[in-house]
Structures are given as structure tokens and as C-alpha cells.
Amino acid sequence: MTVVAVIVTVLLTAGAVLALVRIVRGPTVLDRIIAMDVLLAIVMAAIGAEAAFSRDATALPVLVVLSILGFIGSVSVARFATTRPPS
């Protein structure tokens, strides 16, 4: 159990760090938005994994809120990014 928890944590952390690399490097705001989406998905996965390992459902409402509100940021940024002239 502890071994599995460590493996999952390491995998998720590596994924989050790589997403952060793209957020820092991303040439355009759209690249950064995608990386933010991935980071959010990884955070949701981490919350879910934590709930699974500790058998504790306290954090599940957070997942509900994230799943229904997570897309609003990227939609609004995409909306504004479209009006920008192509470079």
C-alpha cells in the first residue's frame, strides 16, 4: 500500500512538473492554458488518489467543484485569444 502510494505520488509529481515546464516555456497563452488544464487534471487525480489511500471522502466535494468549474478559465481565455490578430 505504501509502495503504491509512493509510486502514484512520484508519477503524478513528475507529470505536474512537466506541465509546469510547459507553462513556463509555452510560447503562447494558449499553450499555457492547455498546460494549466493538464495541471488541474493532475491535481484532481492527486485529490482522488489521496481520498482512495486514506479511505476518506472529505475531499470529494472539491472534485465536484473542480470538475464543473475547471473549464471556465480556459474557455474565457480562448475567447479572448481568438480576437487577437495572428502573428
Binding site: I7, L11, L12, G15, L18, D31, A35, I42, A45, A49
Partner: peptide, 21 residues
């Protein structure tokens, strides 16, 4: 859980490696 975490990692790798948006 492990496969789900692996998919997250592969998404991170793809984000850094893939050529365009």
C-alpha cells in the same frame, strides 16, 4: 490508480515533447 497516474505522466511528457499546439 497507477495506470491513471501513468496517463497523467504521459500527458506531461507529451506536453513538453509534442511540436505544436
Amino acid at each position: 490508480l497507477i495506470v491513471g497516474a501513468l496517463l497523467s505522466l504521459s500527458a506531461g511528457v507529451a506536453l513538453v515533447r509534442f511540436p505544436d499546439l
